[in-house]
């Protein structure tokens, strides 16, 4: 079955599911409460067995009005048929929490840590939600649009080693 057909099947179970297609790529949009269930259904009943990526988009200064500030993006692949589907959900401050999908895919572990590191979105039920790229002491989430490009002075905050001390 092609991906739009799968989506139409899903819409019986998830009536609020909206979807769109662009150049053969199907994107579905779901609310946070039903996100885990939808991903589970896609994995267990429709063969989307591989989690290719989890990422996030900050729509803070976006021209169009979006349903929430952060768009979480899950890219799933069916390794049998090579079909792809993109699942999106929108989150808004102050409740930046999404259910962790580590019970479904082990690969989600590091991907979710990266989203936490860069955007500050927490994943409920994640086994080990630490920073993955930035140093542990870092306090901001730099891929947010309101974080200045040159940082808040982190890059200037080291001890200065003088010639005689070394």
């Amino acid at each position: 079955m092609d991906v739009p057909g799968i989506v139409q099947l899903l819409q019986k179970e998830f009536p609020s599911l909206s979807w769109s297609e662009f150049r053969g790529q199907v994107r579905v949009c779901v609310s946070r409460d039903r996100l885990f269930l939808l991903l589970q259904t896609l994995k267990e009943q429709h063969g989307f067995d591989m989690l290719a990526d989890i990422t996030c988009v900050d729509y803070l200064y976006y021209l169009q009005k979006m349903p929430g500030r952060f768009g979480l993006v899950y890219v799933l692949t069916n390794t049998q048929t090579n079909q792809r589907i993109v699942v999106r959900t929108f989150l808004d401050e102050p409740e930046l929490v999404a259910p962790s999908v580590t019970p479904l895919w082990e690969a989600a572990n590091w991907l979710e840590r990266e989203v936490w590191d860069m955007f500050g979105i927490r994943f409920a039920g994640h086994p080990d939600l630490r920073r993955i790229l930035l140093p542990d002491g870092f306090t901001s989430h730099p891929l947010r649009k309101d974080y200045p490009l040159q940082g808040l002075g982190e890059r200037n905050n080291f001890p200065v080693i003088r010639r005689a001390e070394s």
Binding site: L134, P142, Y147, L149, G151, E154, R155, N156
Partner: peptide, 8 residues
């Protein structure tokens, strides 16, 4: 690389 992550 005039960014937050690179020492100038």
């Amino acid at each position: 690389f005039d960014t937050y992550a690179v020492v100038q």
